[in-house]
Amino acid sequence: MNIRLVITLSTLFVAAFAGQASSKQPAAASAKTHLTVDDVKLAVYQRSATPSHTLIKPNTKDTKVYDVDKQVKVELKFNVKDEKTKESILVQQAFVAFVHKDSGREVVFVAEPETGTKTYVAELDMKSQEKNFEGLNGTYNVRLIIGDTNAANAIDWNCADVKVTTSSFVAAPVKKSQIVNYDPLSEIKHVFREPEKLPSAIISDTFTILCMAPMLLLFIMWLSIGLNFNNVKISLWSLGFHVGLFAIFGLYFVFWLRLNMFETLKYLALIGVPTFICGNRLLRSLNESRRHAKTE
């Protein structure tokens, strides 16, 4: 967010809150200080040299455009004063902002008062601070931004311009989880897997015949040996077993034609349980018949 907008909003909010809290105070107590900036001194110097400051008159702009690279330091000193008493005061917010002339991008530094004085100093060592410019070269407006909740005004003053030349900048990679993208996502289109290619009819028919060969062999052997129906008793258990057995064979045939494994197992459970019970009772009846035949 723009630092000047933050300062303005916070100043208005605190001022409104303070105005409500002090609404019962006398009118004289509600008067606020009017801020001015004086004794503004700017120095752009080599890192190993002694700074030589240029005095900038209030509400004016230094006509010189200073060249700034990683070999120099930028130092800005100033005093914030009460316009009425002309005394130096300390404020809650004091910033020096470097605003790129073309893009409006801001690089903001905090101005701190010198120890034991009320003179504010903002010192910029370009060797260590040029990364904050992220390789954006060009002309920057040097702006003083002053604000306080007890002041009747705020200050945003373009006191000088500098031409910044920085080293090439390689931005650190941003993690994918930290990227916030508000653009609409591309449409997701589901592509279902294409069915596998079926084998030729010859291979399918050959495989089917091989699977049915044991059953065909069973019928051929029955026809060659002959079927003995003498021991078959006409009863409910015999009828249920043979009907269930043929139903299972029919289920296998339908499985080859159209059913899947899960459907086949479901139907097989329904047919197999009664077939098993009928077969068990049929075997028990045959065993009992043999016992009676031996005793006789």
Rank of each mutant, 00 (worst) to 15 (best):
A21P: 04
L9C: 10
Q92F: 05
Y267D: 03
L12R: 07
L268N: 06
N228M: 02
V273W: 05
I248C: 03
N2C: 11
A94K: 03
N230D: 07
S167V: 08
N59P: 00
G272A: 09
P214Y: 03
L218W: 08
S289L: 14
I3Q: 09
E130C: 08
V65W: 01
E83Y: 06
A247V: 01
E106W: 06
S285I: 04
K86S: 09
N228K: 12
W222F: 10
K118E: 12
S88P: 10
L268P: 00
L144V: 15
L245F: 13
V174K: 15
V37I: 15
A16I: 12
D82Y: 02
T166N: 08
E134C: 02
N287R: 08
L5F: 05
Y66L: 00
V107R: 11
T85I: 05
K57L: 14
L282R: 08
K131I: 11
E296Y: 04
I3W: 03
Y66K: 02
S23C: 09
N153T: 05
V6N: 10
A154I: 13
P195Q: 02
D67Y: 05
V121A: 14
K189T: 15
F246C: 08
I56K: 09
S167H: 09
Y45I: 10
K77E: 14
V110G: 06
I277E: 03
L227M: 12
L245V: 03
L265N: 07
L144D: 01
F133P: 08
L245P: 00
L5S: 13
F249R: 00
V91A: 00
F133S: 09
D38K: 15
D82C: 03
G147T: 01
E75K: 11
R4Y: 04
E123Q: 14
L282F: 07
E263I: 09
N141Y: 10
A151W: 01
M1V: 10
Q25L: 14
Q46N: 15
P199H: 05
A31G: 04
H100L: 02
K163M: 03
K61C: 07
P173M: 04
L216T: 13
P113A: 00
I7L: 15
T50A: 14
S167D: 14
I220D: 04
N141K: 12
E75P: 00
K176F: 05
L268E: 06
V232I: 13
F276S: 08
F249Q: 04
T8C: 04
N231V: 01
R143V: 15
L239H: 06
L239W: 11
K175S: 14
L227G: 00
T115V: 12
Y120Q: 03
L12S: 08
L259Q: 05
E134L: 09
T60E: 13
S30C: 05
Y66V: 01
G240W: 02
